[in-house]
Amino acid sequence: MDSEVFRVLGEPRFGGILVVADHASNRVPEDINLHISPELLNQHIAIDIGVAGVAERMIRPGIAAYLANVSRLVCDLNRDRDGSGLLPEISDGHVVPGNVLCTQGRSSRIIRFFEPYHRRLAELLDAVPPALILSLHSFTPRLFTSDRPRPWQVGILYNQDDRAARIAIPLLEAEGLIVGDQEPYSGKLLNATMNRHAEAEGRPYLSVEVRQDLIADAAGQAVWAERLARICNRIALEMGE
Rank of each mutant, 00 (worst) to 15 (best):
G53Y: 08
L121W: 10
L67R: 09
A174K: 14
N233M: 14
A200F: 10
G187A: 12
E199R: 06
R79Q: 14
D22K: 05
H94K: 06
L157K: 02
P116G: 12
H35Q: 15
G83E: 13
I63F: 04
M194T: 15
P116K: 13
P204V: 05
E238G: 00
L177D: 12
P151L: 09
L87D: 01
F113Y: 14
L121E: 05
A229R: 00
E4F: 07
D2A: 10
L9N: 04
Q153C: 07
Q212K: 09
L171V: 00
R72D: 09
I32K: 11
H137M: 04
M239F: 02
V54I: 14
T140D: 07
E199D: 14
S37Q: 15
L189Y: 10
L121I: 07
D31V: 14
S146M: 12
G155H: 06
A216S: 15
R109V: 08
T193C: 15
S146P: 01
A122H: 07
M58I: 13
L67A: 12
D213I: 13
D213Q: 07
E183K: 09
I111M: 06
G187C: 12
P151Y: 11
E199A: 09
R109G: 01
L206Y: 06
G105H: 14
R203N: 04
I169C: 02
D126K: 09
A200C: 12
G93M: 05
Q160I: 08
P88V: 15
Y158T: 00
G220W: 10
G50K: 08
A64V: 05
L190T: 01
H197V: 01
A165V: 11
F139K: 03
Q221K: 11
A65T: 04
D76C: 10
L171G: 03
N191P: 00
R27M: 00
F144N: 10
